[in-house]
Amino acid sequence: MRRILAVAEYIFKQNFRNKILNVLIIFAILSIGFSLLISELAKEVEIRMTKDFGLFSISIFAFLTLVLSLTIQLFEETELKTISMVIVKPITRAEFIIGKFFGIILTIFMNILFMFIILMVVIKIRGGDPWDLKLFLSVAGTFLSLSILTSVALFLSVITTSIPGCIIFLFFTYILGHLTVHLKNLQYKITNQLVYKIIDILYIMVPNLELFNLKDKIHTNFSLFTFDYILLIISYSIIYILIMLILTVIIFNKKEF
């Protein structure tokens, strides 16, 4: 346990020192600036737009945080080769992977938290209600989907050593993850057996990120923000992450340095 925490802390520190958190400043400027702009454009729905844009920025910058910290980690492992000195220490490779996972999601969590606070302040200034449960759940959904993407990123990083390759794959996972529900919905109209099967496979393999995309449904009146649904998606994310981490560890155990 101590070793897992040590790895997580090390990775978080490194991300922190690499000034990943600077994206927060960009976020603050963007969301405040945009909110001012639309309050001129669309007065009657400015709170809604402030929320939408804020939530969108949070998800994009959180994704960016993941990509940046992944790049830093992969760079250190492939170019600096510090990893060989870590692997010979009395730490199991599983502990190393789990520590890395927690280090990255801790960075993402801190980023999301700060951005959320900024967003709440902006909403308050514009006269909205920042203590909206839906708003909170939407941000939590973003965090869950980013945790899943982190586990996918770790998996990709052990099967390929190329940093750009890894990021491109991650990007496609992000997009496909938002589309599988729509593909599934179209499936019954499809007669071609091959396409039908491909959709099934995608639906199972690709993380179903649309489930966590609560920010797009935040304005719905009767909605997904029920206890049952939230419980379902939390369990989904935990199981998905577990599977990804197990596969990552299995491959990582066979890896040579």
Binding site: L5, A6, E79, S84
Partner: peptide
């Protein structure tokens, strides 16, 4: 290892602290 490099934004103490934790 040969020509060890360490992440450049960390302090020497922090790096050793990390490895000490790994050694438990």
């Amino acid at each position: 290892s040969e020509l060890p490099y360490f992440p450049k934004y960390l302090k020497a103490y922090e790096i050793l602290d990390y490895f000490a934790d790994l050694f438990n």
